[in-house]
Design a binder for these strands. Sequence first.
DNA 1: CATTTTTAAGTGACATTATCACTTAACGAA
DNA 2: TTCGTTAAGTGATAATGTCACTTAAAAATG
Lengths: 230, 230
Amino acid sequence: MELHKVMELKNTILQLFPKLNDAKGTDGINILEHSQQMTIPEGTTVFHQGDQCLNYLLIISGSVKVITRAENGREIVLYHITRGGSCVLTTSCLISSEDYPAEGITESDVLALAIPKPIFEQYMGESKAFRKQVFHSYGDRLIKLITLVEEISFAKLDIRLAKYLLVNGSVNTPIRTTHQALATELGSAREVISRQLKEFENRGWVQLKRGRIEITNHDALASLLPSSSH
Amino acid sequence: MELHKVMELKNTILQLFPKLNDAKGTDGINILEHSQQMTIPEGTTVFHQGDQCLNYLLIISGSVKVITRAENGREIVLYHITRGGSCVLTTSCLISSEDYPAEGITESDVLALAIPKPIFEQYMGESKAFRKQVFHSYGDRLIKLITLVEEISFAKLDIRLAKYLLVNGSVNTPIRTTHQALATELGSAREVISRQLKEFENRGWVQLKRGRIEITNHDALASLLPSSSH
DNA sequence: CATTTTTAAGTGACATTATCACTTAACGAA
DNA sequence: TTCGTTAAGTGATAATGTCACTTAAAAATG
């Protein structure tokens, strides 16, 4: 990578991956010097089952959704990787060369930093801060996945749907998504989502348009959630 | 730890954690010298939400189940840690000091090796083989959790139940468990498990006793599973 | 040994969610 | 404007979860 671009990115990266800041010497910068900046267009399949990984990917901007698919075509979103995140699944594959049962797709244009495998391994040995950063990503994913299992198993759909709506929209910023996408996000079926949304609409909590959901009563939706989620 | 015990355990450990075998110098042995062997009785809560971890735990023998609990008391088993496994959740906590939303309980008497945090960190830096071992554990758990999400979301209960029965029992070795434990294992409700088992019994596939399930027709149960699980 | 007490399992009614096989409506492009 | 595509709606039915119990087996106790 050219030097001026490195300098340009340096602060951004260190801001996104604060652990690198603690690294002795010039770790953070050296990693940048040996890495490659990538721009990936929306809708690209970044990885899928059976892929081999040659790079450790850090996301600078944009979002990647990681999904798993059933034989019948139904999908569920496992988690999203956003600004500051890294793909631990490919990392895992980087290290243990195992297959991962999931697929990653960019949800927007993504700017990422690709750290080549040898550099990654070198820094894993040299920098405690870098290790900490990588482990932190792992821990995050584990906790997200456990929380997902918990929600799928225990939480009722109306509550999960309400939560999603509240997190992703507000009274004056409608959510642009389809019922199908919502079903995938929550691991449900489109029809179920449609009916539940219709129920919310009947109660005057949301207003439905094709490809768009407007929240019209934030508080009513919020009152569905358990107190711990406030 | 006493020297003769170290020598006694060395081969077992290296056999269980083959990656340590590749470690340069005397890593594997040194880790043992600085670690402590622990015996934990059945039914002990090894860790629960909010705990602080001071050790990295390697399981030598026995089994720990990791569960998550809903507010209403319903539980689901996330995974089991068995011979050769390590507790990545506590590791994660070891490194990033975050809370984990789960609880670990021994299912049998457990023999474990506790590596103190400083030793763990030292070896993470020094030994590529040790890092690989630790990362491998992480990757394993991630994949297990993703597979669990997939099964909970997509697979039908009769199939999951049949699979469990086939994995944990055979025609002449009955499964000793309760319907409640089975429900927890599969993330379902006791009544649902009872009814499904009764259905299997009506078809002559199993025989039910209090606290015991005997498989009487292995092939019929196996015929439920999709071909990929054979 | 007989009798509580505890724990496991069974049951019916009902609620929620998933699936199937469609139809209807909205939008964009020709 | 019409046509093709994608999004959303619908009714019937199956599967699973929840609730409020009852029944039965095993364990503990006198």
